[in-house]
Simulated scan of single mutants.
Amino acid sequence: MAAEEALFSSLPRQIAVELNLQNDCTVPFHHLINSGNFLHGGATGSLLDLVGSAVFYTTVAQTRGLPLGINVSYLDAAFSNVEIDIGAKVRAVKAVGVATAELKKKSGRIIAQARYSKYIGASSRLKATLPCKL
Rank of each mutant, 00 (worst) to 15 (best):
L47W: 09
L47N: 05
L47I: 15
L48G: 02
D49H: 09
D49N: 07
L50H: 07
L50P: 00
G52P: 10
G52R: 11
S53T: 15
A54V: 02
Y57A: 12
Y57W: 04
T58G: 03
T58R: 05
T59V: 04
T59K: 04
A61P: 03
Q62H: 05
Q62V: 13
T63P: 00
T63H: 12
T63E: 14
T63C: 04
R64F: 06
G65H: 09
L66T: 02
L66S: 01
P67T: 15
P67K: 04
G69Y: 09
G69L: 07
I70R: 05
I70S: 03
I70L: 09
S73Y: 05
S73P: 00
Y74D: 03
L75F: 06
A77Q: 14
F79T: 07
S80E: 15
E83N: 12
E83V: 13
I86T: 02
G87C: 10
K89A: 08
R91G: 03
A92C: 08
A92H: 13
K94I: 01
A95K: 15
V96W: 07
G97H: 11
V98N: 08
A99S: 14
A99C: 11
T100N: 12
T100G: 06
T100Q: 14
A101P: 02
A101K: 09
E102D: 14
L103W: 08
L103R: 12
L103A: 06
L103M: 14
K104V: 08
